[in-house]
């Protein structure tokens, strides 16, 4: 699916963003992923409204799976909250990297509240790819349209999965879960044009399983800081030498 062409101002930037969401592979990947999450929530005994609301409010599939599994298997609320917050750390650097692309001199902080909440892996990857072609003063509206489209897909899929639960063969459930690593890998491969991004990708994918195997706590956070910093230092050294 190519959504590389962002056509000039014939439509509102919000609608252009919304249309871009459904041209993005992530609208479909999220649908599959959240069918899986909806089914998981049903199996753990949550209500349909609770599930739909949690998809929109948490808006981060890994955190949602952690919360469902924790509450569903009787882990305490405090422990669940800690596990969720540990998985959410990645959102901080993502927001910090995204917002300066959206801002103009006149942007008020409250205009950035929606894009801040909407920040998630899918939206972040697509925003970094598509926003450079969008005029700066239209970027917030475009980004909100894009995010809303992706979120609608996820919320609808949560409800579909909730009602499909139990009738999904195990191999297809696995195929739905596999959409996440597969689509992240391919989108990061597509987005990583600069050396620093490619190195960060390779270091991150190698470090996290190693740290996890060594049973080092906060493995994701450490692989991000160490891998990202090494990638950045190599980028600096190369430029200094060039």
């Amino acid at each position: 699916m190519s959504a590389d062409s962002v056509s000039p101002p014939m439509r509102s930037p919000f609608l252009q963003g919304l249309a871009a969401a459904f041209r993005s592979v992530f609208a479909y990947v999220l649908f599959g992923t959240f069918v899986g999450i909806g089914a998981l929530g049903h199996d753990f005994g949550f209500s349909i409204w609770w599930m739909v609301l949690s998809s929109a409010l948490i808006w981060a599939a890994p955190a949602q799976v952690i919360l469902l599994s924790a509450l569903g298997t009787g882990v305490g609320v405090i422990e669940a909250a800690i596990a969720v917050t540990l998985s959410g750390v990645r959102l901080l650097p993502m927001v910090v990297a995204l917002l300066p692309m959206l801002r103009t001199e006149k942007t008020r902080t409250r205009d950035l509240l929606l894009p801040t909440h909407f920040t998630a892996i899918s939206m972040w990857v697509e925003s970094l790819r598509l926003l450079p072609a969008v005029p700066r003063e239209q970027r917030i509206a475009f980004c909100n349209g894009l995010s809303l489209g992706l979120m609608l897909s996820a919320v609808a899929a949560t409800a579909v999965g909730f009602y499909l639960a139990g009738s999904l063969p195990r191999i297809y459930a696995a195929a739905l879960l596999f959409l996440t690593p597969l689509s992240f890998t391919l989108s990061l491969a597509r987005n990583s044009r600069a050396l620093v991004d490619r190195l960060a990708f390779v270091f991150g994918i190698a470090l996290a399983p190693i740290l996890a195997a060594l049973d080092i706590g906060l493995d994701l956070l450490w692989s991000g800081i160490v891998g990202g910093t090494f990638a950045y230092l190599i980028h600096r050294l190369r430029r200094a030498g060039a």
Binding site: M94, A97, I121, V196, L220, G224
Partner: peptide, 8 residues
């Protein structure tokens, strides 16, 4: 780079 490494 940190965000990308965490996603990876």
């Amino acid at each position: 780079a940190i965000a990308t490494a965490i996603l990876a």
